Amino acid sequence: MSASARLAELGIELPDVVPPVASYVPAVQLGALVYTSGQLPLSGGALVHTGKVGEGAGLVSETDATAAARVAALNAVAAAASLAGGVDRIARVVKVVGFVASDPSFTGQPRVINGASNLLQEIFGDAGVHARSAVGVAVLPLDAPVEVELIVEVTTP
């Protein structure tokens, strides 16, 4: 099944490419690889959550951060697809790097970034299985709780 068919089956619409919030481009292609810039969990022009991830009052819950990682990953797929000539030209997800703005006591970064990884596997099947890093950081742009970047292999027309 094609990636576009899986998206339709999942009821997921590929969003428009999120405009950069600083001096960079959303993605760059080098040969058969597309590298995305870090994508935030923006939907409709706004972050779906803000703040640090952890347990306690005033923190983004692990559940909400995991959902935000899915949004960020979908934005990264949109950026990659825009250079590839469509989502069906993405042949394989090679690597995912996920950043989690974490409360100092939070150590569940891998579980949060599973939101991105699981989405990619839902969309691309076996071709969505990838190498990955999940890193806790002090703060992310715009006070986002997560940021996701991808390296994908694309087919040529």
Rank of each mutant, 00 (worst) to 15 (best):
148 V>D: 03
19 P>E: 12
63 T>Y: 14
41 P>G: 12
70 R>F: 04
68 A>I: 11
107 T>G: 10
8 A>V: 00
26 P>D: 02
99 F>V: 06
114 N>Y: 10
45 G>Q: 01
95 K>L: 05
49 H>D: 15
96 V>F: 12
108 G>K: 13
81 A>K: 07
128 G>M: 08
68 A>H: 08
96 V>M: 06
107 T>C: 02
150 L>H: 08
133 S>T: 06
112 V>F: 09
53 V>M: 02
120 L>Y: 01
138 A>M: 14
145 P>I: 08
28 V>I: 04
119 L>G: 09
133 S>H: 08
56 G>Q: 10
16 D>E: 12
92 R>E: 15
131 A>R: 15
92 R>C: 03
67 A>F: 09
129 V>P: 08
105 S>V: 13
51 G>H: 09
147 E>Q: 13
74 L>I: 03
65 A>E: 06
18 V>R: 15
44 G>W: 00
6 R>K: 10
84 A>N: 08
62 E>C: 11
35 Y>A: 04
17 V>G: 08
60 V>C: 08
3 A>Y: 00
83 L>T: 01
73 A>K: 01
114 N>G: 00
79 A>L: 01
75 N>Y: 05
132 R>T: 10
131 A>T: 06
133 S>N: 13
90 I>S: 06
42 L>Q: 10
155 T>C: 00
65 A>C: 05
110 P>K: 01
38 G>V: 06
86 G>F: 11
142 L>H: 10
73 A>L: 12
47 L>A: 00
94 V>W: 05
143 D>M: 15
111 R>G: 08
147 E>H: 02
5 A>N: 04
63 T>H: 15
147 E>D: 14
88 D>R: 13
135 V>L: 14
125 G>A: 09
9 E>R: 12
73 A>R: 01
139 V>H: 12
145 P>M: 09
102 S>N: 11
122 E>F: 08
31 G>H: 00
41 P>F: 02
90 I>H: 07
142 L>W: 07
78 A>H: 02
70 R>Y: 09
139 V>E: 14
55 E>C: 02
151 I>R: 04
141 P>Y: 09
39 Q>S: 05
115 G>K: 03
77 V>F: 05
156 T>G: 07
